[in-house]
Amino acid sequence: MAIEYQKNVAFFRDVVAVDEAETLLEWFQKSPEAEIDLSDLSHMHTACLQVLMAVRPVVSAWPHDELLKKWLQSALKK
């Protein structure tokens, strides 16, 4: 799995595919205060991105990939 769910933090790694959106949403429904760590992310499917946009979780770490970071910040930092 490209998302590793720990107690209160979800770690996103490599490529997060479309079918993880459902689980991600369910996890947030249960723990809405959770944080996300995107440091090792290289891409996430649009479906997962929009879950994050709806949830607006605290981002404890942005991706190393500068361009991806910019994209995600424009979506999540408003």
């Binding site: 947030f28 929009q50 879950v51 979506a75």
Partner: peptide, 23 residues
């Protein structure tokens, strides 16, 4: 330059359908 926004205001998490694109 780029920006991502939502088409419709987000519903509550309980009602959200992750597989309907709203971006």
């Amino acid at each position: 330059w780029h920006d991502i926004s939502c088409r419709q205001p987000w519903p509550s998490l309980q009602e959200m359908d992750a597989y309907l694109c709203n971006l």
